Computed example of a mutant assay.
Amino acid sequence: MKINRRSTLAALGAVSMLALGTVAHAQEYPAKRITIIVPYSAGGSTDILARQVADGLTKVLDETVTVENRPGAGATLGTTMAAKARPDGYTLFMGQVSSHGIAPAVYKNLQYDPVADFAPIKLLITIPNVMVVNKDSPYQTAAEFLDAATAEGKTFGSSGVGSSIHLSGEMFKSRTGANMTHVPFRGSGEAVPALLAGDVDVMFDNLPSAMPHIQSGALRALAMTTPTRSEKLQDVPTLDELDIPELDGFAARSWFGLLAPASTDPEIVATLSSALDEVIASESFVSFADTRGAQIEGGSPEDFSAFIADELSSWKTVVDDAGVTVE
């Protein structure tokens, strides 16, 4: 096929116009409503955070940001939808420890790739899990509980198979060799009352869920599962602090961050990252995080990418050791 000068110039012109269009698009962003997909029903912790972030971004970007709930299939439905969305910056995703940590290790037939299908924007908050027992439990420390679990066996409750609460318990079990049997419930709304009633021996619950019962004295906090102590429970040690070699470096937590579909323009990602810096530094967001015992994180998109890689590796090890799979 012959290629003449006219066709070559036309092709080069088309490429130039495409490049200019991309630059212009990034410079004028945002020019319309932005939607944040949440893979859970309205009213849950992910949804509440997403709406807080949406309100903040609306003010900073001077453009409407809304939340769209897409629950189903263990939160993988909404995640897959976000992964396949047009990468124009107008569809974002509220990622969490499940979508970009646990689910890729647990589900055999996942319909999205947590790394290849997403462009991380910013890690927003982390929430510690706390090892708690009933107030009538004879165990005052995590070490005492471990001794009993090793000798006679214990049960641990969770909000469901594959949750961070479940796998925190599995991590404790696999590291220490404790004889512990998992008892899953349909959400923390069922699991916590079971612990309060003494139907299970221990739970590695999310701090916001356990905190009211710790404060009332109905539950006793034995240890935090994060590398550092919680400002809300400064007298409660971390598992890493205990003189138990198998628990050195123990880290299990819930986290939330904003992502875009892969191939989103880097300038748009940078714009959103900068806007989120303002959002998480605002008085309203600081108050929001504080009331939930959450740690505000921040950082660059590159930092978030590295964080996700570490989470995927860590949770895969836990899941493989526990033998947890979901079809």
Rank of each mutant, 00 (worst) to 15 (best):
I3V: 13
S7W: 05
L9D: 05
G13A: 10
G13C: 06
Y29Q: 00
Y29T: 00
S41L: 12
G44M: 05
D47N: 11
R51A: 13
G56C: 04
G56S: 05
L61M: 08
A73N: 10
G74R: 00
A75G: 00
A83Y: 02
A85C: 09
R86P: 03
G89W: 09
L92K: 01
L92Y: 03
M94W: 04
H100N: 13
I102D: 00
A103C: 03
A105H: 05
A105F: 12
V106N: 01
D113R: 01
P114M: 12
A116R: 13
D117N: 13
A119V: 12
I121H: 03
L123A: 04
L123R: 04
I125G: 01
D136L: 12
G157I: 09
I165M: 07
I165Q: 07
L167H: 01
G169H: 09
E170Y: 14
H182T: 11
F185Y: 15
F185M: 01
S188P: 05
F204V: 10
M211F: 15
H213V: 13
Q215P: 02
T228H: 13
T238E: 01
D240S: 15
E241M: 14
I244Y: 00
L247A: 11
A260Q: 02
T264K: 04
P266R: 08
P266A: 14
I268H: 05
A270Y: 02
E278M: 03
E278P: 03
G298D: 04
P301T: 09
F304W: 00
S305V: 02
S313A: 15
V319N: 01
G323F: 12
